[in-house]
Amino acid sequence: MIGATALRALVLTAAFFAALSPATCLGENSNRLPAKATKELPPELLSLLRQKKMPKYSPILVRVFKQEAELEVWKQDTTGLFKILKVYPICRWSGDLGPKLKEGDRQAPEGFYTITPELMNPNSDYHLAINVGFPNSFDKANNRDGSLLMIHGDCSSSGCYAMTDEQISEIYSLARDSLGGRPSFQLQAYPFRLTPANLAQHRNSPNLSFWKMLKVGNDHFETTHLEPKVDVCNRRYVFDA
């Protein structure tokens, strides 16, 4: 039988080594994160953060526009408002304008999504990846299904928003830093910039009512520069209800 003193020593030793073990996060498994997932932001982007008075670990918000093929990263500055940090050209997206409806339709999603640390994939075959979280509660309420819809590298898309490896490296690092001690950030995915002119151009689309619904959340953000609170009621998006 192990004596009380020896048993206590074993317990303390186990606790000490447990404290030295890194906690898993950002979608990682028990293996150590690859270097590409822990890479620091490039010096020029760190300099831009300082110029714009954006703390390195402050929240971000991501907006995607299909028609313009642009991904915007907004970041909270010292005033507490979101300001534009950088615009990335989307290398490739698949499908047409309009939301994703079912598995295999090759459509990139549109809507409001919540990105949690578990949706960050440091071991992606496409360099690095961020799962957009499709289907969300709105998608499920409207019987839309699909899986593994990402923002990722490798410039190859099948229902995803594909970036270059260099771009996704920056975007992933910005997302990773913003999630330090924070549960999530918001992704807003749009068919195009929801201006009156663009909506008028697509007035005959069967998706017009859906896009007008998204415009409410879009306009809230563009007016206040604050993240809109998003809920789903009666199969519709509602904002700051």
Rank of each mutant, 00 (worst) to 15 (best):
A175P: 06
N207K: 01
G181W: 00
D145R: 02
F192I: 10
M213A: 14
S173L: 00
D165L: 02
D177E: 14
P183V: 06
R193A: 14
T164D: 08
L179H: 06
D219S: 13
A162N: 06
P196V: 03
S184M: 03
G159W: 08
F192Y: 15
P183S: 13
S209W: 03
R203A: 15
G180M: 04
N142G: 12
H225K: 15
S157D: 07
L179K: 04
F192N: 08
S209G: 01
F221I: 08
S173I: 00
Q201C: 00
H220C: 01
F210R: 13
F138E: 09
G159A: 08
T224S: 13
R144L: 03
L214G: 09
L199V: 04
S178Y: 11
D139N: 15
A141G: 04
D219R: 12
P196A: 05
T223K: 15
A141C: 02
I151W: 07
G180H: 03
H220S: 12
L199I: 06
L187M: 14
F192A: 13
G153F: 07
Y172C: 10
M163N: 04
D177V: 00
G181F: 02
S137H: 10
I151V: 15
G146V: 02
A189H: 03
H152C: 07
N198H: 14
D219A: 11
E222V: 06
